[in-house]
């Protein structure tokens, strides 16, 4: 028995890899779904966007890249759906060069589904280096940072941008974050210009953002794949995030069982000694 327990604490890493891979693949393959109720902070984010009058401007900041795409891309798509359904105007920019095209692809994709017109219903500004400098100058005048959109069209030639000059004209800023850019949005756009912010974040950085939520520096927080799946459910369009949550459950349980097994092996060995 003790031998068996010791072995349980010493499984080859490749076996663990295979178990994890199969757990993910099989739950996706068999389309297993579990229902969950949206987290309060996600519901609050949804309600805030839901309460905006038609025509309000929502600014999206794409601060992630392909390394965190599975979490933030579904979140972005669900939020864009919500915005277009409510006839809100969307401005998109970003601070992660390698990932910004992901935002653009999603924006074009969702806009097409809702028959939205570029320049009238949505605008893609692109990227400028300088992070905090960009955030500060956007508070004065968007044109001082982006005189044109990504195609080189002057902002005043785009109908929806004519009355949009700075944060005063933006109802909500949605930062989709995989790193520390979200902190900067809070520290510069919110602290200096009182901009209302909702942060959507990868699960890795989500715990670090709770202090902002408690302090009221952000009005909503959508964390990780769970947050994305909650938002998909709230907009009645379950997609890839909702499909992935079953795998998430199964693998979490598996990892906890593995930790347990590791500990059983450890204590069996310790007792033996």
């Amino acid at each position: 028995m003790r031998d068996f327990l010791r072995k349980a604490g010493n499984i080859d890493r490749r076996v663990i890899y295979l178990i994890i891979f199969l757990a993910v693949a099989l739950t996706i393959l068999f389309k297993i779904r579990f229902k969950s109720t949206p987290l309060p902070e996600v519901k609050r984010s949804y309600e805030i966007i839901n309460s905006l009058p038609a025509g309000s401007v929502v600014m999206f900041s794409i601060d992630y890249d392909a390394s965190s795409m599975p979490e933030l891309d579904p979140m972005l798509r669900a939020m864009l759906r919500h915005c277009f359904e409510k006839n809100l105007k969307v401005i998109m920019l970003g601070h992660w060069p390698l990932g910004l095209p992901l935002g653009q692809i999603a924006l074009e994709d969702v806009a097409r589904q809702y028959h939205k017109k570029y320049g009238v219903d949505y605008v893609f500004l692109g990227y400028r280096p300088g992070l905090q400098a960009v955030m500060l100058n956007l508070g004065k005048e968007i044109r001082s940072v982006f005189s044109t959109d990504y195609r080189g069209t002057p902002l005043d030639s785009l109908p929806m941008m004519r009355g949009v000059h700075n944060y005063n004209d933006i109802a909500i800023l949605v930062g989709l974050e995989a790193g520390s850019v979200g902190d900067m949005w809070v520290q510069f756009a919110n602290a200096r210009f009182n901009q209302k912010i909702i942060l959507g974040s990868t699960a890795v950085i989500t715990p670090d953002l709770y202090p902002y939520l408690q302090a009221g520096q952000i009005v909503g927080l959508i964390g990780g794949l769970r947050g994305a799946s909650d938002y998909e459910e709230l907009v009645n369009h379950p997609a890839i995030a909702s499909a992935g949550m079953a795998s998430q459950t199964v693998v979490h349980v598996l990892i906890i069982l593995l930790i347990l097994l590791g500990n059983i092996g450890y204590f069996a060995t310790r007792r033996g000694k």
Binding site: I20, F21, V24, A25, I28, S67, S68, M69, P70, E71, T202, A203, V204, T206, P207, G223, G224, L225, R226, I240, A243, G244, S247, Q248, V251, H252, I255
Partner: peptide, 15 residues
């Protein structure tokens, strides 16, 4: 939360 994030990335690729 980190576990959750890492698994999500794998889910994306397997999907």
């Amino acid at each position: 939360y980190t576990v959750m994030a890492r698994i999500s990335l794998l889910i994306g690729r397997v999907y």
